[in-house]
């Protein structure tokens, strides 16, 4: 199991479209993937689960993956956050 904590840097945080992109990406991996935000931990493959975090810019979020493609999963999801979900230049 591996984890990576990053800061949310896109202005709108984990809003609906960003959450949809994230859950879609998470579903492409076999590993179990979770997001940890403050004291909440949700399944990253669930769009509605991600939305319950109401995660906003400037806060840390942890990506946790467990499974045979865990390394790639955490790496790709972290990249998505770092690329601001391709919604800002």
């Amino acid at each position: 199991m591996i984890k990576e904590t990053i800061e949310i840097i896109n202005k709108l945080g984990l809003h609906a479209r960003a959450s949809a992109k994230l859950s879609h990406l998470a579903n492409s991996f076999q590993s179990d993937i979770f997001l940890i935000y403050h004291e909440d931990r949700v399944n990253a493959k669930s769009l509605l689960g991600i939305l319950t975090l109401a995660a906003s810019v400037g806060n840390p979020i942890t990506i946790e993956a467990d499974g045979k493609d865990e390394k790639e999963a955490v790496q790709k999801i972290a990249e998505m956050f770092k690329n601001k979900f391709d919604e800002e230049s």
């Binding site: 949809a20 859950s23 669930s46 769009l47 509605l48 939305l51």
Partner: peptide, 9 residues
């Protein structure tokens, strides 16, 4: 909307 998104996913 949450219900519809649940259905779609």
């Amino acid at each position: 909307l949450p219900g519809l998104l649940k259905f779609l996913t």
